[in-house]
Each structure stands twice: as C-alpha cells, then as structure tokens.
Design a protein around this nucleic acid. Structure first.
Lengths: 250, 250
DNA sequence: CGCAAAGTTGAGGGATATCAACGAGTGTGG
DNA sequence: CCACACTCGTTGATATCCCTCAACTTTGCG
C-alpha cells in the first residue's frame, strides 16, 4: 500500500508539455494562492525548480541571503538554532508556503530549512526580481502579501503556545494540518505526519513524550487513529472540543 | 522624582525648527534604524505624526487596512483577539518599532494596538507610498526590511515560549527590554514596566501570579529591584544565568 | 473617602517534564 | 538472510513546575 508521497507534481497546473524544471509567473502565483489583478511580470520570466532530498538543508543559518523559495511539493521543517546547538522548530512549510523570508534584512538566513521528505521548491530570486518586474507596485504587493501572511501565521502560533494546554495544542495542530492538506487537495482526515514527535514537540513547546501521550489518548478516545506516522481524524468536532478546553484561555 | 515619561521628543533628530507634526523621510529612516544607500524618496514627502493617549487603540482588529505606523515615543501593546474575547499579547512595540504590518494581505488589521502611555506614531501610508516613491527597488527594500525584522523578532519570541521555563522567560524578557531601552538611549538597568503583570503574563504564556512571583524571587535574590512598575537590574549576568537554566533546552 | 484595578503572597493540586525501560522500524555490514 | 546498531515511538513512575483558587495589600482615581 503506497502512502501519500510527493507525487502530485501534476496538480499545480503544468501546461507546458515538456516541463523543463521551471515555473511560469502564472503558475507561481497559482501555487502561492496570490491574486494580483493586472500583475504584469514579464511572462518570459521563469522560476527554476530545485529538488531537495529528504534530510537535506535548503539553506542553513548564517548562509548568505540569496533567493526565497516557494514549496512546490513535499514538507520542510524550519528551525531556529541557538548558539549551543539547542534548537526550536518554527514551522512545517508545505506546498504553497514560502521559505527564507527572514534574512532579508540581515542579508543572511537566520534559520535553517530541512526537507522532511523528497521535495521541490521554486526559486524566487528576490534581488533580481526587483529590477525586471513589470509595474513596480504590483511586485511590491506580491512580497508584501507573502510577508504579511507569514506574520499572521506566526501570530496564530504564539496564541497557540501562549494560551493552550498540551492536548489542546496537539489537537489544534492536527486540525490546522488537516486544513492545510485539504487546501492542497488532499483529504483533511487522513494524512501523514512527516515530522518526528521530537520536532512536533519542539514546535508545540512540548516534549516528545507528551505529544505521544496526547496522540495515544486521542486514539483511545476514538477521536483519531494513529499508527506511527499514519494518521486519521475520525471526529473533527471532538478535536475542536479539545481545543476549546484550553487551560488558561483568559 | 519624575519617572521616565514620553518626553524624549527631541531625541530623534528634529532639525526642522518649526516642527509641524510631521517627519521627513530622513527622520523616519533614522527612527527605524534602516539605512538605504541612495534611497531617493521625494524629500518633499512628510509623514504626519499622530498622538495616541494612554488606553486608546491605534487601530482595532477587523478595521479596514490603512497605514502602518512607526512608533516615535511611548509604548504600545499588540494584541491578538479570539472570537470569544480571550486574547493574547503579541508584543510591546516601542520607539522605532512598526505597527500594523499584519493585515496587508487580508486588507484589514488582524490585531489591535493599544497605547500603554501617551505616545506618538508616524503614519506611513503604504498604499500611497507605492506610487510616489523614488526608485522602486529602494522602496521595496524599505518595507522588506521592516517585515523581515518583525519576523526575526517573532522567531525569537517563539523560541522563548517554546524552550524556556517561567523564570527564564521573565529574565529573558527583562534583558531584552533593557537592551531595547539601551538602544533608545536610556539606561538598560533602570526603567519602567509600562505593561501590567497580566499583559506580561499573556505575552510570556504565564499567569500574572507566576510573573509576580518570579519578579519577587529575583528581588529577594538581589538580582533586580522591583517596586510596582519601577525596575532596576543589578546583576545582568545573574539574569543571563537564569535564562541559561532553561527547562527543556534540547 | 471609597471603589476598582493592579499587584502580592500562600496553600494545594493538577498538568507536564523528567527519568527509565522497552518495542518497533530502518539501514548496514557480515 | 540475519545480526547489529541506531533512531523513533510508546508507556509507566515519579518529581516538579506552574496554574488555580483565595485572601489580602497597594495603587490610582473620582
């Protein structure tokens, strides 16, 4: 039985018959779900694709800032590294998400992005784009939206970390992940957890044991079914109920 | 004895003799500590100032997106509101910080910004700026840097929430706040906590009691001295030590 | 003065980290 | 093919951190 792998390359509008490893501007905007009325980037522009194998870093903390990346397929983990090697997972970017936005200011990446499975990204050469874009205002809006979206997402995350208990965090994470998969055209009730429990714990501010226990508890309760990384959501309402039972939600 | 109030209006380069309530482009860039080589915004452009009284909201969640704001003096709290009234403090913007960046994409603010003391902000009319800016690339970089900086700050915050224990969080907060005051030209060892313990707790993912206890403990240990909102840091190294004693720092 | 909001302090318990042992999955080399 | 090592995941017992609840004090303000 083949699990969901990164084989949905045809899902995101690939009209060019002989696909050189590149995306057109329209394809990129479609991937990122950004609509810019009357955006006129030179249609001749193309965004080259890059394949990243599982476990390989797309960029590392401290690297000189270069392009930003739009995930086309697969899953990454974005990690903030402490000086002494301790680390904090910041998120799990998937298709349609953007990587590398931090680092624009300091001109070097502050985080590290690792592929959790074989993945593909479209390279967006921000510095060069600034010059060849069509109407300037449109292009500004493009990146504004990317950044603003990222900010909104991180706000949600802080809310999650700041006001929910352990089980609520895990439940919220599962729901959000399901929604993201649904947004990509997959089932929102059956998918795979591509990250380890440890990474999930780091992301949620919990230990791997607590994450594991929460999942087991949900499983016992019949709300979900979890076997290793395979996951099925049976009772979405039940999960939302658990999220609502936040610990110290003012 | 007069405490530090918002009376440093002359600190941030106000060469224009008869200051109408407005800032020049140069003054704004200086305030934000952003250097753009050869940026040529029309020098005729001016950014009007707005006074915000303590307790007044600069904008509210759901408001139609308008300008973004650069804090010139005072302190704000940025709050994410849940549907049912529960809320999460996202930060405490001070002079040089920018407010309202979220909401660019959705075209309405997602958060709420309240003044913790009488404050001043410079209004940056993002939509209009897009057209009258000088060379397009420069202006892009301007906002890119703002957004990127904000992202980096939120990454730090997630690290704080995700990997530190209660006392470490409070200690880290005090150190960071001290650095910010130092950056503004104030003492980094003697300043005021403009926010309530409740807000601080929300920001740090703790209860007000835990915050209060941590401060009291630091006081007893002689590391700081706290009386109400007045605060003095005696032993910065000691605080850093406490931060280093993180609970589950991998 | 009197009231409301903010802050402090204590007692107690629940939630979650820690420590430890084990099982399951995976890749490697003999 | 199997033994081995290694990572990942699960489960249990225990300790501890921090939240909850409660009473009280202090501050600020009309």
């Amino acid at each position: 039985m083949q699990l969901q792998t990164a084989s949905h390359a045809t899902r995101t509008a690939a009209p060019a018959p002989c696909t050189a490893a590149a995306l057109s501007p329209d394809e990129l905007l479609d991937l990122l779900k950004i609509s810019l009325d009357g955006l006129n980037i030179d249609p001749g522009t193309s965004f080259t694709l890059r394949r990243v194998r599982q476990g390989v870093a797309l960029y590392r903390a401290g690297d000189l800032f270069g392009p930003i990346y739009a995930v086309r397929s697969g899953t990454f983990k974005s990690v903030l590294l402490d000086a002494e090697g301790s680390y904090q997972v910041l998120g799990f970017p998937m298709a349609g998400d953007v990587l590398g936005l931090d680092g624009i200011e300091a001109q070097h990446y502050r985080t590290e992005a690792l592929a959790l499975e074989d993945s593909e990204v479209a390279i967006i050469p921000l510095p060069r784009l600034a010059h060849l874009g069509g109407k300037a205002g449109d292009l500004q809006h493009f990146v504004y939206k990317l950044l603003s979206r990222q900010l909104a997402r991180e706000h949600m995350q802080m809310w999650l970390l700041g006001s929910l208990g352990a089980e609520s965090r895990v439940a919220a994470f599962l729901l959000i992940l399901g929604e993201r998969y649904a947004h990509l055209g997959y089932s929102n009730t059956r998918f795979n957890l591509r990250m380890t429990r440890l990474d999930l714990g780091s992301f949620l501010g919990l230990t791997q044991e607590t994450v594991s226990r929460a999942l087991s508890r949900f499983d016992e309760a019949g709300v979900i079914q979890v076997h290793n990384k395979e996951l099925r959501l049976f009772d979405v309402d039940g999960l939302q109920q658990i999220v609502a039972n936040a610990r110290h939600a003012a």
